[in-house]
Design a binder for these strands. Sequence first.
DNA 1: CTGAAAGCGCTTACAG
DNA 2: CTGAAAGCGCTTACAG
Lengths: 352, 352
Amino acid sequence: MYFCVTFTYNKMEKKKVTLQDIADALKLTRSAVSKALNDHPKMSQKTKEAVQKMASELNYKPNQLAAALRNGKSKLIGVIVPAANITFFSSVIRGLEESVNNAGYSVILTQSHDSVEKEKEIINTLIESRVDGVVAALGLNTKDYSHFEKLKDEQIPLVLFDRIIKNFGVGTVQIDDFKGAYDAVSHLIENGCKRIAHLGGHQHLVLYRNRLDGYKAALKDHGITYQPELVNLSDLHHEDGRNAMQKMLDLENAPDGVFCSSDYAAVGSLQVAREKGKNVPIDFKIVGFSNEPFTSYLEPDISSVDQSSVIMGHKSGELILSAVTCSDTEFSPQNVVLNPTLMIRKSSKLFS
Amino acid sequence: MYFCVTFTYNKMEKKKVTLQDIADALKLTRSAVSKALNDHPKMSQKTKEAVQKMASELNYKPNQLAAALRNGKSKLIGVIVPAANITFFSSVIRGLEESVNNAGYSVILTQSHDSVEKEKEIINTLIESRVDGVVAALGLNTKDYSHFEKLKDEQIPLVLFDRIIKNFGVGTVQIDDFKGAYDAVSHLIENGCKRIAHLGGHQHLVLYRNRLDGYKAALKDHGITYQPELVNLSDLHHEDGRNAMQKMLDLENAPDGVFCSSDYAAVGSLQVAREKGKNVPIDFKIVGFSNEPFTSYLEPDISSVDQSSVIMGHKSGELILSAVTCSDTEFSPQNVVLNPTLMIRKSSKLFS
DNA sequence: CTGAAAGCGCTTACAG
DNA sequence: CTGAAAGCGCTTACAG
């Protein structure tokens, strides 16, 4: 599978330079040096400058571990996502890392792989690492929240995004899934669809419930009767989209459009519709969810609900930072709801 | 842009339980408790059990910060990527996190945004965080490596992946880019291409040099003369692919196929070829690089060189762990070269 | 098999 | 404006 080229180098121990070394060099005490370095108000400018100079000369690197232990805060934010290589999550991570990094915090990244067991382990590890806060999206199968309660017990602030827990008393960041779905389905109706299918996600997750509700509401408001056989719930992977569409397009009264709660399911739908001889968008229209970059590369490109994932990350970062840095005994976690944007592309337009 | 719902909860201070608390409860000393918890050989089974029991009763969580300070190792691995939301990087991160996590290490994720300045800052932060090792892919503009030298000065092991530095005396993980390119171009030739273009990356990065070399070698071995005007070097984004292809297809002697060092550039090429009335793959054939998931969703789906990114992450994890846990004074960093796999799809096949 | 002691590198309340 | 001292929570070499 691979081959290796190796060579050796000498790994010799070298003493790390500490506050004491700077103090010695300058005939000061550790405390003075510490204060100078931390820009303490009651320190003469002269001493500060001398210390700064010596620190960089000696190539001093403060030991954050020691500072963290002493201060009782690690400047570490733990992040839990199901998998780091799903575009939506990696985009949130991107935004999150940017925003907390700006404030001098680092991100510890963990993956639950949608396993509750793993989620529990991670939370223990994060507590032991003494992270100052945790930002998380629930695993697909997480229905019991006791491990998240533990964070509360330890007084570690928590912010949930996208896959959130309702009324859990923690900060949350989500998009308005109801509105995203409502807009998408209304758009399909306005472009001539009469029978719209919905490929949705598991209903124990709030966001998928909200999307289904938005779908139903849009139908109702446009005088279309809700048909349970046009709704399929799954993990929403590419294959799930294919399977669902295979069945639905074989219905006697097949749908003429579909609103998918995931772009992967939407691509699957597009492929199957084509295989069954449908012309998309003329015979069959599609809207996906998440606005994954690839949706715009397809032919026809697929309409999708953008959930501004990088911004969701930024916002999650802001929330966790405000919780972490808040010194009040009374703290009010915010629940942020971002506005979704329907990106209209060829897959759903009447005249393309 | 968003609205907020807020409410308050009471943030009261609670004492964390420490070794001392367990010791007090059991009339033991901290040292005894520490040894019991760390499964020290010279501890009676009875004590160990009693300590374990009390620890979980008191809901004890060891303070990793304190342990790290004392042990001189943080069990933290720093990761530097240009951006976390590029599929290739997020996949490597996925694999890396999995493998180091299995060994009890956590990942600190950072992003350089292809900025040398940022890269320098990150390395300082990681040193201050006392990470036990660093895994990194170079930024696109990083030509000076002095900040990576710093890691050596601090005796922090480094593993570079994909965008590596040659002969830097550190562990590296890459795919055989030469072979990947060679195979891709040979495949195009075998499927009838006579004039093959190459959209390549900046040549100060070894991997892009290797791919260009592979391209040239394949041409040569098949008796085709290398034509500089058919090579375009860029950042390889979607737009770069479009721009390059716009120009090339207007050449008097336009290419009949293209090997792109990125899938994003490949999609751009596909779009432009279509816009110019080419039938892909009949008139014009395309092979990309990285095997991004979306390449298989397109119509025609795009052939691409798979660089087994998750495995690259696993391998990087293994290398950094072996460097971190190695106690020898002599350590030999490995240079791992993974085998690329050409994924043949419709965009490059003679008879599709 | 168990305990007393020292120390990792920092910071801060206190005293001068 | 500066210093001496204590302590964050752990671990380990040493003594018994």
